[in-house]
Simulated assay, not measured.
Amino acid sequence: MNSPLAAYACDPAHTRGRRHRQSPAPTRNEYQRDRDRIVHSSAFRRLVYKTQVFVNHEGDLFRTRLTHSLEVAQLARSIARSLRLNEDLVEAISLAHDLGHTPFGHAGQDALNGCMQDFGGFEHNLQSLRVVDWLEERYPDWNGLNLTFETREGILKHCSRRNAELLESREPHGVAWRFLHGGQPSLEAQLCNLADEIAYNAHDIDDGVRSGLVTLAQLREVPLFDRYRASAQADHPHLAEPGDERRLLHEAIRRMLSDQVYDVIDSTSLALAHAQPRSVQDVRTLAPLVGFSGAMRAQSTQLKQFLMRSLYRHPQVMQTMDAAQQIVRELFDAYMGEPRELPAAQAQQAQAGELPQRARAVADFIAGMTDRFAAREHERLTGLRLMA
């Protein structure tokens, strides 16, 4: 049985509510409803064919945006339970946090942002909010999923000042207020942000080794990982045998994840004991409270630097990402030049207004694409096959 929520946790009975009023559900609280709406959304299903690091067709066992989101949700729920935070809310935020990501991961995002520089740019966090607020079409009387304030606040992890001002003008004292006036989101939102980092560091090690682009020998230069590799090998000497490298890798990652989870729980508990917030509103006025210890933060940063150097900028990954960026740029140019190439609803929207409105309609359509659809659509429009 779950422990009662802490006083500083988000309580669905005291949510700041939805943009459109709805009657309560008889069997689910408000954050459970948010989670269910996210899981049943079209954008969530598309995550299964969106790149995390490796493009979807490169292998069946690599992570996708969907499996990443599930791993974030698992980690966040585990930590939330120990801290007596709201597990349903952290699950909803975790499952929705990447809904606005483009095809081809960060390479696609960077390319689309470049295309949109004259039209307000492109931010995947803002796009995730745009998906749940406007782009999903599931209800008869409004656009979007009509999620609670707390879930929407957690989805919007980052936001430029320009976009925050625009959001604030449409929704005074809403989800963008903190980016203009200071303050923090809920502890649940802070936790999801850190669980995202923990998850991708761990699974990118796994995928990097599976791909052959990173080796266990290389990982020995990363203190955070090598400590757990050494302890796993000491406890199970047979894992040093060549045929057991995968087991050694999995055991080291498992131990690393566990220690990071316990570190977050211990460090955050100390921060909470020192700050003594008595409400969610107290949390919003304090410095960030969810975090690693200083030592774990430093080692996690070293791991991220290693992955950037050895995996994300590996020539093989960069070659694929160069092709991905070309696909996104040329799709954007093709649709801007001839909006009738878009599906009927998007074409009508693109042709209905000025150039900025057309660009945003095109960006929305491209951002919603899966990797394989983007590659096929690019081939249809250009005659070029850039990805097998």
Results as ranks from 00 to 15, higher is better:
residue 1 M to V: 13
residue 3 S to L: 15
residue 7 A to F: 04
residue 9 A to Y: 04
residue 12 P to L: 07
residue 12 P to S: 07
residue 18 R to M: 11
residue 30 E to W: 01
residue 31 Y to A: 10
residue 31 Y to K: 04
residue 33 R to I: 14
residue 49 Y to R: 15
residue 50 K to V: 08
residue 55 V to R: 15
residue 58 E to Y: 07
residue 64 T to A: 08
residue 66 L to S: 11
residue 66 L to H: 14
residue 69 S to L: 03
residue 71 E to S: 15
residue 72 V to P: 04
residue 75 L to S: 13
residue 75 L to E: 11
residue 80 A to K: 07
residue 82 S to N: 14
residue 83 L to A: 07
residue 84 R to L: 09
residue 92 A to P: 08
residue 94 S to P: 03
residue 100 G to H: 08
residue 100 G to K: 07
residue 103 P to E: 08
residue 104 F to E: 01
residue 109 Q to F: 11
residue 110 D to F: 09
residue 112 L to M: 03
residue 114 G to P: 03
residue 115 C to K: 11
residue 122 F to C: 02
residue 124 H to S: 06
residue 125 N to D: 13
residue 128 S to N: 01
residue 131 V to R: 03
residue 131 V to F: 11
residue 147 L to Q: 08
residue 149 F to P: 01
residue 151 T to G: 00
residue 161 R to I: 15
residue 163 N to V: 05
residue 166 L to H: 03
residue 169 S to T: 04
residue 177 W to R: 13
residue 177 W to H: 15
residue 180 L to S: 01
residue 181 H to L: 05
residue 188 E to F: 06
residue 189 A to D: 04
residue 195 A to P: 05
residue 198 I to P: 07
residue 200 Y to D: 14
residue 202 A to E: 03
residue 203 H to L: 06
residue 208 G to D: 04
residue 211 S to R: 13
residue 212 G to T: 00
residue 212 G to V: 05
residue 219 L to F: 07
residue 226 D to W: 10
residue 226 D to Y: 12
residue 226 D to S: 15
residue 227 R to P: 01
residue 232 A to N: 08
residue 238 H to A: 15
residue 238 H to L: 10
residue 246 R to P: 01
residue 253 I to L: 13
residue 257 L to S: 10
residue 258 S to I: 09
residue 263 D to H: 02
residue 274 H to P: 02
residue 276 Q to F: 00
residue 276 Q to G: 02
residue 280 V to K: 01
residue 282 D to G: 03
residue 286 L to K: 11
residue 289 L to Y: 02
residue 293 S to E: 08
residue 293 S to A: 03
residue 296 M to G: 01
residue 300 S to T: 09
residue 300 S to A: 10
residue 302 Q to M: 09
residue 310 S to C: 11
residue 311 L to M: 07
residue 318 M to I: 12
residue 325 Q to L: 06
residue 325 Q to I: 07
residue 326 Q to D: 02
residue 328 V to P: 03
residue 328 V to K: 01
residue 332 F to G: 00
residue 335 Y to T: 02
residue 336 M to A: 00
residue 338 E to R: 13
residue 339 P to K: 05
residue 349 Q to M: 09
residue 354 E to Y: 02
residue 356 P to D: 10
residue 358 R to F: 07
residue 365 F to L: 10
residue 367 A to G: 13
residue 370 T to D: 06
residue 375 A to F: 12
residue 382 T to D: 03
residue 383 G to M: 06
residue 384 L to P: 01
residue 385 R to S: 12
residue 387 M to F: 14
